[in-house]
Computed example of a mutant assay.
Amino acid sequence: MASLIAVAGLVAACNPTVKVEAPDKPIVINLNVKIEQEVRIKVDKDVESLVNNNPNLF
């Protein structure tokens, strides 16, 4: 009986504890991002000649 009480006492003493705490220092995320964009415009020959003949059109 005494050994049963001792085992029960040991099992009760082994309750795991989980603590959630905020960090002391701020979280730093470094993002090295390179963004490139390429725009291609296809123009019909009629429109191209119109633009070349009238440079002040746009």
Rank of each mutant, 00 (worst) to 15 (best):
I5Q: 12
A8W: 15
T17G: 09
L4Q: 08
L4P: 07
V47R: 09
E36Q: 08
K45N: 00
E38L: 14
K45Y: 04
T17W: 06
K25Y: 13
K25P: 00
C14E: 13
V39A: 14
T17H: 12
V33A: 14
R40Q: 04
K42S: 14
D24P: 02
N15F: 12
N53F: 00
V43C: 03
D44K: 08
V20D: 04
A6Q: 11
S3F: 13
D44F: 07
Q37Y: 09
K19D: 12
I41Y: 08
L31A: 13
E48P: 11
V33I: 15
V18K: 06
E48M: 14
A22Y: 03
E21K: 03
G9W: 02
V28F: 12
A22I: 03
N54Q: 03
E48V: 07
I27L: 06
L57V: 05
N54R: 12
K19F: 09
P23N: 09
K45D: 00
N30E: 05
P16Q: 00
I41Q: 04
V7A: 11
N54C: 01
D44S: 13
D46W: 08
A12P: 01
K34F: 06
R40I: 03
E48T: 11
F58V: 01
V7W: 05
V43T: 06
V28Q: 15
V43W: 04
L31Q: 12
V28T: 09
D24W: 06
N32Y: 06
V11F: 05
S49F: 02
N30S: 06
I35G: 10
N53V: 03
E38S: 08
F58K: 11
D46F: 07
V47F: 09
K45H: 11
K42G: 07
D44W: 15
A2P: 05
D44H: 09
A12F: 08
L57D: 01
I29H: 07
D24N: 15
L57A: 06
P55L: 00
N32P: 02
K42E: 13
V43K: 05
C14G: 15
V20Y: 06
K42F: 13
I29P: 03
I41V: 05
E36M: 05
V18T: 12
A2D: 11
K42V: 06
I5P: 04
V28K: 14
N30G: 02
I27C: 09
N52K: 03
A22E: 04
N32T: 05
K34V: 11
A13H: 03
S3R: 08
A12K: 11
N15H: 12
A8N: 13
M1S: 12
E36V: 05
